[in-house]
Amino acid sequence: MLWYALLVGAVAGERLVELVVARRNAAWTLARSGVEYGRGHYPVMVALHSALLASCLIEPWLARRAFLPPLGWTMLVVVLLAQALRWWCVASLGPYWNTRVIVVPGARLVRAAGPYRFLRHPNYVAVVAEIAALPLVYSGWLTATVFTLANAALLAVRVRCENAALGRAVAA
């Protein structure tokens, strides 16, 4: 299980890098009259993602889960693909990418770059895949189920907030 703990630690480290990029991008967008929306759900999102990482380690340990190679290796590939998709989103949006919903009034939507050519919210596809797959790398089916459902509820709020914010900003 040591290698799994290292994987979860690497994902946590990646989250910290995301926060550094997001903070830099927030300063950039706010300096250009960016407006933040959805502040109320942001702490819930941070708590959910933090609890997911902790639960990924706790469930296999407490429930004495076994590593099941066909499931584990497949889910590891899904986690790695989710990370690749996430960073493709970050690169495609450049300074507009953020973990918060901050939009610059009058800015044009990115629709022709990277994965945004194919999906409206590809970053959330990465998040959904990662939340389902990371716990399953080490047979954490309970964590995968609980956090997938919690994330679905959170994303219902988040996507509605983001779509409304982007609609207002583009119309401005």
Rank of each mutant, 00 (worst) to 15 (best):
L19E: 14
R100Y: 05
A165G: 08
N163C: 07
L80D: 11
C89Y: 00
L85F: 05
Y116A: 05
H121G: 15
G72L: 15
A26H: 07
H49S: 11
V110L: 04
L93Y: 00
A63Y: 07
L155H: 05
L155I: 04
Y124Q: 09
H121S: 06
L134Y: 02
N98I: 01
A132Q: 04
E162R: 01
R111K: 15
V17Y: 08
L119V: 05
A82P: 07
L57N: 07
V104D: 01
G13A: 05
G9C: 03
P135T: 00
E162N: 04
L7F: 06
Y96G: 10
Y124K: 06
L52F: 09
E59N: 03
A12K: 06
V127M: 04
V11L: 05
M1S: 15
A63H: 09
L136H: 04
Y4P: 04
A26M: 10
L149Q: 10
G167F: 00
F118P: 08
Y124A: 10
A164K: 13
P105V: 02
F67L: 13
P43C: 07
C89I: 01
A22Y: 10
A47D: 06
A47M: 09
W88K: 11
L149T: 07
C161N: 14
A27Q: 14
Y124I: 04
V46D: 14
V146Y: 00
T99L: 14
A47C: 05
R39S: 13
R117E: 05
R23T: 09
R160W: 06
S139H: 12
S50M: 10
R86P: 02
L16K: 11
A164W: 13
A112E: 15
R160A: 15
A129P: 01
A107S: 13
E162G: 06
L7T: 02
R120V: 00
V35Y: 02
L119N: 08
G140W: 03
L80K: 03
L68H: 14
G40L: 12
T74E: 08
A5W: 12
A47E: 10
V146R: 10
Y37C: 12
L16D: 13
T29I: 12
W141A: 15
V157Y: 12
W97D: 05
A171C: 09
Q83I: 10
Y116D: 09
L62C: 13
M1V: 14
R23Q: 14
W73R: 09
V44P: 03
